[in-house]
Design a protein around this nucleic acid. Structure first.
Lengths: 191, 191
DNA sequence: GGAAAGATTGAACAGTGGTTCACTTCTTGG
DNA sequence: CCAAGAAGTGAACCACTGTTCAATCTTTCC
């Protein structure tokens, strides 16, 4: 019984994420989510008290997955420059692979409560990158700078460079090297 | 009579912009705009066919004003480095002076039709900056790069660095020099 | 096997806010 | 001074969705 309950809960989360990846947050009415999860509309409310709560959880899971992937890729590298390159390749590669989801996570209009979760997402990215930058500065690989500001700006740069093309449907494969070069210059990675 | 008509239209646009600067797009119900313009709710529809149309125009005017201010400031400078610094100072200075408006123009959730205008706004900024970058590259002041990509990334960096603080209410005066340094490094302005 | 506990259903409800429209008020031209 | 017509009014309308809830079905356990 308990298993059945939590299984339904899981199915709802999965369904919501799938719809978001296909049709964005705009397509995520409670009715649509319930239908895809194989439940009635009202049943969603046995598992989540409100739509905003459901989607903060969806965002949390999806964002964590992204940050983890980027973090894992960067951890394989040793120098700050290589780590930043890994961050960009992973971030951009994943975004280009699931453009609709990336747009939803990064920029699509959502409920205010959910938007707060998105801010945390960007903050998490920024903190991850700030750590690499701080280490690079401490180790002399990077020139002195405010690691948090650099990281925040870099997150914005990545997001903008992705969302623009995503909205326009223009997926640029040549964008990733260009962005990496931009980021390396911006952080002062010695060539 | 014609004058009266266009005067009312103007009053509506002004009212909408004022409310947006005070309470953001969220506070811009048709009723609120009409009230501030000294009209009845329905009268708005003698001048604009729909809310989205009204606000695409509000956005167009407001964005143009921003881009013009930045463009004018940059035009006073000769080198690419000085121009970029002027762009950042003007952009950030104005954003910090009207934080609510800046947030609305840059990031607040809005109708889909209005969002398209916002994209044009960001694009206009990017094109402006891309021009300066291209000139800098052509003149040998900046290293070879894709001016459009660099400009897009820079717009994202500026936006993110502004919106974060705007949302958190943290207006950082030390942010502007830091951002300028970031941008100069990113574009390869020789120090 | 049966009854209590609880999950599920889906149609009805409610709040919001853009939009409409029958009516009033005002300007204009003869 | 008076139609004619345009502009203005604001309450009613409607569409859209998140949310609720009484009825129904499932599971569990004595």
């Amino acid at each position: 019984m308990k298993a059945r309950l939590s299984a339904a809960r899981e199915r709802i989360l999965d369904a919501a994420l799938e719809i978001m990846a296909e049709h964005g947050y705009a397509g995520c009415s409670i009715a649509a989510v319930a239908h895809r999860a194989g439940l009635a509309t009202g049943s969603v409310y046995s598992h989540f008290p409100a739509k905003a709560r459901l989607f903060t959880e969806v965002f949390r899971v999806a964002c964590q997955r992204e940050v983890d992937a980027v973090s894992r890729a960067a951890a394989r590298e040793a120098s700050a420059g290589a780590r930043i390159a890994a961050v960009i390749e992973t971030f951009a590669g994943r975004a280009l692979q699931s453009p609709r989801l990336a747009y939803a996570l990064l920029a699509e209009p959502v409920d205010a409560g959910v938007d707060a979760e998105r801010l945390r997402f960007r903050r998490a990215y920024a903190e991850l990158i700030a750590g690499y930058v701080a280490a690079g500065v401490a180790g002399g690989e990077l020139p002195p700078q405010d690691p948090d500001l650099s990281a925040t700006a870099l997150v914005g740069a990545l997001g903008e460079a992705m969302v623009g093309p995503l909205a326009a449907g223009v997926a640029g494969p040549g964008t990733i090297p260009g962005l990496t070069a931009f980021a390396h210059r911006a952080l002062g990675v010695s060539t």
